[in-house]
């Protein structure tokens, strides 16, 4: 799985950090998403999918199967 984030779409809600804190963080100043793990380990895939689904800015894209 590859994770791609679109900073321009990110609204800084931080929902992804609540769900998958090992993979996502937020910039201190404006809360915009910081991708910690672009290719997360398998045991985190489920949380990452949930984070992508719940993202209110639809800013997280996943490329599965790689």
């Amino acid at each position: 799985m590859k994770v791609i984030v679109d900073e321009a779409k990110c609204c800084g809600a931080g929902q992804c950090v609540l769900i998958a804190p090992e993979v996502f963080d937020q910039r201190d100043e404006d809360g915009i998403v910081v991708l910690l793990e672009p290719e997360p380990a398998e045991d985190r895939h489920s949380a990452v999918r949930e984070a992508a689904a719940v993202c209110p800015g639809a800013a997280i894209q996943l490329a599965e199967g790689s």
Binding site: G14, Q26, E29, G31
Partner: peptide, 10 residues
């Protein structure tokens, strides 16, 4: 405010 400061409150 820095959005991260909200997390502890949440």
């Amino acid at each position: 405010m820095p959005p991260k400061t909200l997390r502890a409150w949440r």
